[in-house]
Amino acid sequence: MDTTTGKLHLKREVGLISAVCLIVGTMIGSGIYMSPEWVLRYVGSPGASLLIWTASGLICTIAAFAYVELGTTIKESGGEYIYIFRNFGHVPAFLCSWTSVFLARPAGIAAMSLSLAQYVAAPFYGECRPPSAVVKCTAAASILILGIINGLNVKLATRIQNVFTFAKLLSLFIIVTGGIVLIFKGHIHNFQNAFKGTIGEIGSVGMAFQQGMWSYDGWNNLNYVTEEIRRPQVNLPRALLISLPLVTLLYLMVNISYLAAMSPAEMITSGAVAVTWGNKVLGRWGWIIPLSVVLSTFGSVNGTFFTGGRTCYVAAREGSMVTMLIPVFLLIISVSLVVAPIIGDPRIEYLFVFLFLLSGLLVYLLLIHFKLCAGLMDRPTVFLQLLLEVAPTEANLE
């Protein structure tokens, strides 16, 4: 508890190793096992797909420099929410938290949990697809378990993250090693004329970047727990600048391994490129790959839980700068990655996203700005805090 402001602050229990594991463990989910075929489908050639993977990692690394400055200047948890709040005020910060808490985080957790459940249930049904009810119940159980773990103990959640991060790194090293062996055996035909058939349309390139960037998603999650990092001015930049080059190199080597084992046509039609790779290269040991997907996705969901709750926490606590060239560059890149797929492939879903943002603005105006129904949630909030033993975000120190 901060005795000067009366606001609750979180304990600093995340060291450098845990910080690196949090970033790497959240980034490496199911994406690297599934996205490569889509990146290749959109750009049309092995060489172009490898450029997309490299450029995606480079963009995230450049963005990390901005987040290092933000995280060491604004030493509060909450990630994008608190940065927007401190620089632009309540309304854009509320829309950020509204989108994150009610749409982006839940949808991401649900999608990853369904992928996890699909791979958990698959071995019990042989060649058949697992029933939808089994997959959904397994996904719900994983969400419940991880929600309880993250609600009970920060140290337990970080230890689980560390264990699963090392497990998923081991599985990627297996794929990388297999690719190196194949290349030494002469499987290099897919790297000859590597750019033949490249598709250069803006919409296709934009969609390829979205697939690649999705696999890197989570690189910024450490900034959601800034208040819990020991010596954040030192460990935050170190963790980001260790994690991002490591993951970029791993992703590039994994894609090279995929291309050493399969033709572009096989990758595009595989449906699950890592599983296809495992069956071709590992033979009867191919079951290691589905297990790796389960471990990766479980760790990624845990990391999302661990960091996602901090946005809600900081937004509740608050009641809801960086210099020149890097932010400008990132703004241009971000706008381009958003606009290019809309121009190249307009869809009705984009309208739904815009309407959801408008609904958040309406909620803000009615409940926060004009304070309609003020005090309506006070009693339910106090009741839930007492029932769940949740500390209030502010305390009366008088």
Rank of each mutant, 00 (worst) to 15 (best):
F65V: 13
G179N: 05
W277C: 05
I342V: 15
S49E: 03
G197F: 01
E80M: 08
K168P: 12
G47Q: 12
P341N: 02
P380V: 11
S56A: 15
S56V: 06
G186P: 09
A66Y: 04
T138P: 04
L351M: 09
N396I: 12
K136A: 13
H189M: 10
V294Q: 02
I145D: 05
M213Q: 02
L172Q: 07
K7M: 10
V14Q: 01
L8S: 09
I17L: 14
Y224Q: 12
Y251Q: 08
G308Y: 02
W219F: 05
H369C: 04
A194L: 07
G147A: 08
L182Y: 07
V205H: 00
S115C: 10
V43S: 00
E80R: 08
L249A: 15
T138N: 06
V353A: 13
V234D: 09
W38V: 02
F166C: 13
T248R: 03
A63P: 05
D378N: 14
P327H: 04
Y258I: 05
G179I: 04
A66L: 10
S35D: 02
T5S: 14
W277D: 02
L244G: 00
Y42A: 02
N302G: 06
T3P: 13
Q161R: 11
T381M: 11
C128T: 13
F209N: 02
P264E: 13
L365A: 11
G151C: 07
L362V: 15
L144R: 04
I326V: 15
N150S: 08
Y364A: 09
G178Q: 04
A141M: 12
G218D: 06
T5Q: 07
A140G: 08
Y42W: 06
L236P: 02
I183C: 11
H90E: 15
V335N: 04
V314S: 07
S100D: 12
D2Q: 10
L172I: 15
T3N: 13
I52N: 00
F370L: 12
D2H: 09
L182D: 08
F298Y: 15
L116E: 01
L241S: 04
